[in-house]
């Protein structure tokens, strides 16, 4: 893919320092790190793909499959936990029948637990794509998910 090449060209000095930055830029552009991208980086930096995958999977930022159309991120920071986000997590798992880091079969929803999103005064907090939802309750979460499902059904 030409986009990957153009990202790689930004790092003319071939050294391993840049590996994380390259991966970050690719993820920013495509939303995930594909097999192709891994191979390309490995050719460019002369590091085995296994090493790159090992590094990328060490960090929680990188994902290896595309996000769903609606990417749900729910805060699992301490403050949200104290404000009982667990009930909401479980409710979402049940409703969408997926777990942390997975995508629904119809590729509509993907789900991610994240660290603190700095909405500690308004927990539990969740975002769907860019939209932020605060002070969640079970009813609220179900309404929100139903709303998105309805849009898709129409």
């Amino acid at each position: 893919m030409p986009e990957i090449d153009s990202i790689l060209e930004k790092y003319p000095i071939i050294q391993t320092d840049n590996l994380i930055s390259i991966l970050q830029e690719i993820q920013e552009k495509f939303g995930f790190i594909s097999k192709e991208a891994l191979v390309k980086i490995s050719d460019y930096l002369k590091i085995p793909t296994s090493k790159i995958y090992g590094l990328a999977s060490f960090y929680s930022q990188f994902r290896f499959e595309p996000k769903g159309k609606y990417h749900i991120r729910i805060c699992n920071g301490t403050s949200c936990h104290i404000n009982s986000n667990l009930i909401i997590l479980n409710e979402l798992y049940k409703k969408l029948s997926i777990k942390d880091g997975e995508v629904t079969k119809n590729k509509l929803f993907s789900f991610e637990e994240t660290e603190c999103m700095s909405g500690c005064g308004y927990g539990p907090v969740m975002t769907i794509n860019e939209k932020v939802y605060t002070k969640l309750t079970i009813d609220k979460v179900l309404d929100i998910i139903n709303f998105y499902m309805q849009i898709e059904n129409q």
Partner: peptide, 25 residues
């Protein structure tokens, strides 16, 4: 500016250095 990639252990100074060098933190 070096952007971290989400690993709590990188708060540790030597782990942070590994991260900046482009290795596992």
């Amino acid at each position: 500016i070096k952007k971290g990639a989400g690993a709590y252990v990188c708060g540790e100074e030597t782990a942070l250095i590994s991260n900046i060098e482009g290795k596992r933190g």
